[in-house]
Amino acid sequence: MNKTLTLVGAFAALCLVTLDASATLVVKCETRTDRSRASVDGSNLVPGMYSARLSSGANTAQSPLAQTVGDEVAFDFDSNKRDIKKGATPIAKNFIVGGQATGTLLDANGAVVKSKTVNCRAR
């Protein structure tokens, strides 16, 4: 009986690792003279709570935890007050530097699920 439980536990852990390995991360960012904005969106995730971290140069911001909807979770970062009131994590208008940003998806324990660096659109 003990061996059976061990095998079942090992199989369950392997399934979770496989699902995390297939996680998809989409990071988009945009700069304007008076605004920075970005989104960090994960899919193919194990249901649960996640947060996102956005970094550019020496700047870093982290969202609060959010629950997956199906297998997806989405986070917005913005310097626009209207979007912040709608739930975006606040960042400074000059947050994005060097035309690049890195979005990182974290699980509820703070472990990195996936990370991606992208070039930001300048408008």
Rank of each mutant, 00 (worst) to 15 (best):
D34L: 11
T89H: 03
I84W: 06
G87T: 05
R82G: 09
G87V: 06
N119A: 15
K85Q: 14
A52H: 02
A58V: 12
L54F: 05
V112R: 07
N59W: 07
T102K: 15
D83N: 14
K86A: 15
T24R: 11
S51Q: 05
R32D: 12
M49R: 13
N80M: 11
D20P: 01
G98Y: 08
V26D: 14
R82F: 12
R35T: 09
Y50F: 06
K86Q: 15
V97L: 15
S22D: 10
A92Q: 14
I96N: 01
G70L: 09
R35Y: 08
V73F: 00
K93V: 09
T89A: 11
T60P: 07
G110Y: 09
T104N: 05
L54E: 05
A21Q: 09
G57N: 11
G110T: 08
N119M: 11
T104Y: 00
Q67Y: 04
A58T: 14
V112F: 02
L45T: 01
T24K: 12
M49F: 11
R37P: 01
S55F: 02
R53M: 12
R53Q: 15
D71I: 02
G110D: 13
D20S: 12
A111D: 15
A101C: 15
L54S: 04
L105I: 05
G48M: 09
P64V: 13
S55K: 14
G110L: 12
G48Y: 04
D34W: 11
L25C: 11
R35F: 07
A108C: 08
A38T: 06
S39K: 09
A21I: 00
R35E: 12
A38K: 01
L105Q: 03
K28N: 14
V112Q: 06
M49Q: 14
A52I: 00
N109D: 15
D107Q: 06
D107K: 08
A101F: 05
R35H: 10
A61F: 08
A101D: 08
C29H: 03
C29G: 15
G42V: 00
D34G: 07
T33L: 14
V69Q: 05
T68K: 02
S63I: 02
K116G: 01
L25M: 11
S36R: 07
K28A: 12
V118P: 02
P64D: 13
G48T: 05
K86R: 15
S55E: 14
L65F: 06
A61T: 10
D41R: 05
K81N: 11
A58Y: 10
G110R: 07
Y50K: 01
D76N: 15
A38L: 10
I84R: 06
G99W: 04
Q67F: 06
L65P: 02
